[in-house]
Write a protein that binds this DNA or RNA. Structure first.
Length: 676
DNA sequence: AGCACGCCGACT
DNA sequence: GTCGGCGTGCTC
């Protein structure tokens, strides 16, 4: 007997001999095996009678067998992650909390090897065990609790049945362990939470394993208390910022079956749950679900795949779903849940302010007028500016904007420190006195960063504005302000994230044009989503100002009217005509090189030449850019695009192999990139 | 990952 | 001459 073992390393599975006295259910178990003269922990992914590799005499034997880590479904999911994101399976395993699982498995089995909790649970049936805890001991108060819950659940079922037949569909899917993905376009963030609460509360007893994802760690706390109300100690929080010990504790609880409701960020999607009946991704459009390094999986897409494999329901929700998800709902891949409040909902009024008409370069008169009004009432006003510092500096005589000597990027003027700074290389210099273009001295600030907006507000309104800035170590948050504080807050988009559950009277966005001018096919979508998100921070009778130089932009019209239908229609039409996702799939190659650009570029060109004329495949690039990575001077990008996902993956795999054959390079591969 | 091997520049 | 930097390749 032979077993294929994956290690949490950048290597493919390796074959080992199975010891004669080993358990016959090795598949999915943690084992210790010799590797390079040492013993490593790995995962058995398959067991066969005959080994497939040539030199059979060199095959070593497995040293120790530990508890189960992965079910059949989890193994399929790991395989999918590795195949889809074009990474060795070991990397997928490493991202799946395998090392934490090893820690718990080893410490448990050393105490009592035959009394492994994971084995016990598998034997008894995971679901039965959960229910047994509720029904088990008749003298225990749990029995009364269940009775009460049952009555409550019955009432709820009838109430919700009358309200929304689609909700019943979710309940049934969860109960019957059927796969189905739902897309809920909520009209407010609280609605998103409300629906989740309904589903969880209603299905508490039929729920055996659940994963609840939020995009940011800061969103976990509030949701955790809601979940604990329903599931008590079954809830477990899991995110990358946990300390090592806490993370191991969490994995221990999950593996022991003590926790089966997992609340976390992106990485929690890979939690080692043996059973899953419900997965939800809140704020599904959020870009932080996509990884930027290592295994670059999108947790939202992984949720749908894991749900499919595990036969569980998947609920994606958002106040502004991604165009991809809207499309998937349209073609029937997802079932749409419609918010009944959607039509007659009161929302803050959005005003587009044409700054070109006015003879001011920073804050328009309309916004200042409303700011005065709000200041007099003691309200809250948030000013979002996309630039740090005070301004750029420009020579009034020749129009030359001061730039960094090394990087060629515009220098940012910091008035308080009286310096200029390059945001690319971080170099700081004393403020520039004379123009490098014409040697003149007529230098003026141009444009407005947060410092300048703050200064102008304070001068015009005779108030103190509060600056929220992302600085290393220090992060002021709005919650630090007393509730009765008359707050005028200035900050970058970072500031918007720091404000929660505080209803603002108004928000002004100064960077609307910058948002729309991003060199990315998703720029409009991001702009639309960002404004929708920000509108959630404002009282329904409040105002949202968008200051722009291009008030005619059609996206601004969709934004102003909260016209989701119009926006998605326009966006999908655009994507279709340019053959971008969701009408095609893309894979991005980034090749980093240190030197010798010409030789390598020539080699790369020679390789990709063979890929240029494949039917149904579009190849863009190679594009050479300065590398953002230290140690490397250039990055070469190649984009593969195709309607045929299978063919795209096969081609990308071949291309990856060829490029990895080159020397002095480093390749990063990004499947379904969000930034290109 | 981690270890060996091998190729180049610096140095008692 | 040799020491040690790190780039590359392999691990059943």
């Amino acid at each position: 007997m032979y077993a294929d073992v994956v290690f949490p390393l950048k290597i493919s599975p390796l074959t080992y001999k199975v010891p004669k006295d080993a358990q016959n259910d090795l598949k999915g178990r943690i084992v210790k095996a010799p590797l390079m003269g040492k013993a490593y922990y790995g995962l058995v992914i398959s067991v066969t009678e005959e080994a497939e590799i040539k030199e059979k005499k060199n095959i070593k034997e497995i040293l120790n067998v530990h508890c189960h880590f992965a079910s059949e479904s989890t193994l399929l999911f790991l395989k999918w992650l590795s195949d889809y994101y074009l990474m060795p399976m070991g990397i997928a395993l490493k991202s799946s909390f395998f090392e934490e699982a090893v820690k718990t498995a080893v410490s448990k089995s050393s105490q009592s090897p035959t009394n492994n909790p994971r084995q016990r649970i598998l034997g008894a049936g995971f679901g039965d065990k959960k229910i047994a805890r509720f029904f088990g001991d008749p003298n225990h108060q749990g029995a009364q609790q269940v009775e009460r819950l049952a009555i409550k659940a019955k009432n709820n079922e009838e109430k919700i049945k009358a309200e929304n037949s689609e909700l019943l569909l979710i309940y049934n899917c969860i109960k019957n362990k059927n796969y189905k993905s739902f897309l809920y376009h909520a009209s407010s963030i609280s609605q998103e939470y409300f629906l989740l609460n309904e589903v969880l509360d209603k299905c508490r007893l039929s729920m055996h394993g659940a994963i609840i994802l939020v995009p940011e760690i800061s969103q976990i706390e509030g949701l955790a208390s809601m979940l604990k109300n329903i599931f008590d100690e079954r809830v477990c929080v899991l995110h990358s910022n946990l300390t090592k010990k806490k993370r191991i504790d969490a994995i221990t609880r999950i593996i022991a079956g003590q926790s089966d409701v997992i609340l976390g960020t992106r990485s929690a999607m890979l939690a080692p749950l043996m059973n899953i009946s419900f997965i939800t991704v809140l704020n599904e459009h959020n870009h932080s679900y996509k990884g930027e390094e290592g295994l670059r999986y999108n947790a939202r897409d992984a949720a749908v795949m894991r749900g499919f494999i595990e036969k569980s329901s998947v609920l994606l929700s958002s106040i502004c779903p991604s165009a991809e998800s809207i499309y998937n709902a349209k073609i029937g891949k997802y079932t749409t849940l419609v918010s009944n409040e959607q039509t007659d909902l009161k929302r803050p009024k959005i005003k587009i302010v044409d700054i070109k008409k006015e003879n001011v370069s920073t804050i328009s008169r309309d916004i200042l007028k409303e700011a005065k009004n709000i200041a007099s009432k003691g309200g809250r006003f948030l000013f979002l500016v996309n630039k740090k510092g005070y301004s750029l500096i420009r020579c009034e005589d020749c129009g030359h904007v001061a730039q960094c000597n090394k990087c060629g990027i515009s220098l940012v003027f910091y008035k308080g420190k009286n310096i200029v700074r390059c945001h690319y290389c971080g170099n700081e210099e004393a403020v520039i006195e004379s123009c490098r273009g014409c040697r003149g001295f007529n230098i003026k600030p141009v444009g407005a960063g947060i410092e300048r907006i703050k200064e102008e507000l304070e001068r015009a309104l005779k108030i103190n504005a509060f600056l929220i800035e992302k600085t290393k170590g220090i992060s002021k948050t709005i919650t630090e302000l007393p509730d009765d504080f008359t707050s005028f807050i200035v900050g970058t988009t970072y500031a918007a994230k720091k404000i929660r559950d505080k209803k603002l009277d108004a928000v002004a966005i100064f960077n609307a044009d910058g948002l729309l001018a991003q060199p990315d096919f998703r720029a409009y979508e991001r702009a639309f989503q960002e404004v929708m998100q920000i509108s959630q921070l404002i009282k329904t009778e409040g105002f949202l100002y968008l200051q722009t130089w291009n008030p005619k932009n059609k996206i601004l019209r969709f934004i102003k009217n909260y016209d989701f239908q119009g926006f998605y229609k326009s966006e999908l039409t655009q994507r279709k005509s340019l053959n971008y996702p969701p009408f095609s799939r893309i894979i991005l190659f980034s090749i980093f090189i240190k030197k010798d650009t010409d030789r390598l570029l020539h080699d790369i060109q020679k390789i990709i030449h063979h890929y240029a004329n494949i039917n149904g495949l579009e190849l863009l690039g190679p594009t050479v850019m300065p590398s953002a990575m230290k140690l490397f001077i250039h990055s070469i990008q190649i984009l593969l695009k195709s309607k045929d996902r299978k063919m795209l993956h096969e081609t990308a795999k071949r291309l990856l192999q060829e490029i990895e054959g080159l020397k002095d390079i480093k390749v990063k591969i990004d499947v379904d990139p969000l930034k290109i």
